[in-house]
Simulated scan of single mutants.
Amino acid sequence: MRYWFDILTPKQVNFFKPVIDELRKRKHEVFCTSRRYREVGRLAQLRGMDLAIIGEHGGESLHMKLKASAERVMELINEVEKFEPDVLASFSSPEAARVAFGLRIKHVGFNDSPHAEAVCRLSIPLMSKLMCPWIIPVKEFVKYGISEKSIIQYRALDPAMWLKRRLRYTNIDLDLDPSKNTITFRLEESKAAYQTKNIISHKLLNSLIKNFTDCNIVIVGRYSDQVEELKKRYDRDAIVLDDVVDGISLLMKTDIFIGSGGTMNCEASLLGIPNISYNMQDIAVNRFLVQKRVSYGYTSVNDVLKLVRRMLNDEKLIGSIKNNGQRLLAQMEDPMKKVIKVLEQVN
């Protein structure tokens, strides 16, 4: 069979890489597309993946988002028709969903973010099958127009796909002071359609830099313009990464991770690394991680500062998070078998 993967985020690179490798071992043909996005392109290189770059995101403006999406659909049509895939796999890519529907290509979709309403409304109704983590109630997706019988759950969070196997991680040199603990801070996805403007990242970051001069502070941006702004603000007081690095390798050098409630918070949780989410605390995955005591949510800047200090010094808490996270990952199934079965048998 011939499979088309539309890969739009670093998480999707990591999730789909082992799936693609397995499909090729089984003598299937695979074609991968993406759009212009610094993190995806660089991580794909690190993972040894060949992506056809088609179109771009469009940025924060609704007008530019719509225009970029429409243009990307037109560009995808030409490339996809040349490949003639039997099945599309995507993490709810609106453009890929529209092209697959128009060309009568089966679409196996993946989603752990029913809160991303715009993306869900534009993709889920057009899917043949939807696969998602078991902790998300199916009703959260049925409301977007897919039947319950078309939803397949796996008993794992998405990072289990790559954390349960050895991807090609890279050694990174951050020029850290080895005598200090390291706090890594990840900026929010400020251009995402689901993101609100009530963001406290800079207020929190300023307080961390002021109060933890005894720690290495590493700041990870998402977009080129975001990174440039970070360097102007913080380059004297923190390490601002201007190149894309492998997230797992970065977490392995991190004592505390503070993020916006996305994939790296989940990775840190399952690796047993103390972490705090300052955003998107009310989504299913983050509620689950907090409930399992492998992640902590934001309440106020002062409370976060107290919690960071405790996470640096309380050996009992550090050990508890490590044990809980590693046990939770061990209890999860490897999604690979179920994903391959659905991809090969979709009808």
Rank of each mutant, 00 (worst) to 15 (best):
Y3T: 10
W4L: 14
L8S: 14
L8R: 12
T9L: 04
P10E: 05
V13P: 03
V13D: 06
R26Y: 08
R26D: 15
F31P: 05
T33N: 07
R35F: 15
R35M: 12
E39I: 08
V40Y: 05
A44I: 03
A44P: 06
E56S: 10
H57R: 08
G59D: 01
H63S: 10
A68P: 00
S69F: 10
A70Y: 09
E79Q: 14
V80W: 12
E81W: 08
S90E: 07
S90N: 11
S93D: 13
F101P: 09
L103E: 13
H107N: 12
H107L: 07
D112A: 09
A116W: 13
E117A: 14
S123K: 04
P125M: 10
K129D: 07
M131N: 04
I135G: 04
V138S: 11
V138M: 12
G145E: 05
I151M: 05
R155F: 13
A160N: 03
L163M: 13
K164E: 04
R165E: 12
T182I: 03
I183E: 01
T184K: 00
I200T: 09
K203S: 10
N206S: 08
C215E: 02
I217S: 00
I217N: 13
I219L: 00
V220G: 10
V220D: 07
S224A: 15
D225R: 07
R233W: 11
Y234M: 03
A238F: 09
D243L: 15
G247M: 06
S249H: 06
L251E: 02
M252A: 14
D255C: 02
F257P: 06
G261N: 07
N265H: 01
C266W: 05
S269P: 10
I276G: 01
N279R: 08
M280Q: 13
M280T: 04
D282C: 02
F288I: 03
K292H: 03
D303G: 03
D303K: 11
L305R: 05
K306H: 09
R310I: 08
R310F: 05
L312D: 01
L312S: 00
L312T: 02
N313P: 13
E315H: 07
I318D: 06
I318F: 06
S320H: 08
S320V: 05
N324A: 09
L328G: 09
M336Y: 05
Q345D: 15
